[in-house]
Amino acid sequence: MTTTNPWSPNSFTPADPAYFKVKLITFSITWGLIFLASLVPGILFVASVDTPLWLVIIPPVLVVVIALLILRILRRQVLALGYLEREEDFVVRSGVMWRKQLVIPYGRMQYVEVNSGPLERRYGLCQLTLNTAGAGATAHVYGLPQAQGQELRERLVAAGEEKML
């Protein structure tokens, strides 16, 4: 399948490989909890409460199938992340099934945030959010090494002041 992109995926700065671990842990926790919830009818069955057999089998199987499907593209999702600093604007890309490339001129930037959750901090990562006046035009950069994130933020702020429209 040929893919057409405004900017070639190779020109982007990719997310740090460690970000895959963060995604994997988040994924395991979320789907682990969902799986546990799907086991409730089974536990009731074992505890000899009257429960129909299909209710015992179908939910866990369904959960496992969906989780495996997501797990399969999880790595590709992380590989699909990236950002590109250009002369006049900033581009982020994301998505495997639904592919996106969002370009925001520096001059439209309102403020830049750098956040890091406990899990990201453990791997020395952070995420950067670039906000404009429009709700839809918000660029997220995930899986940045913390030092790199701070530098990027400073560069963006400087570019924003310089390229003010």
Binding site: M1, R99, R108, T132, A133
Partner: peptide, 20 residues
Amino acid sequence: HRIQGTEFRQGPWEQRRELA
């Protein structure tokens, strides 16, 4: 000059038909 950001998007069905 009012556009805040331009977003190129392509879903799975659009990829197959070379649409975006």
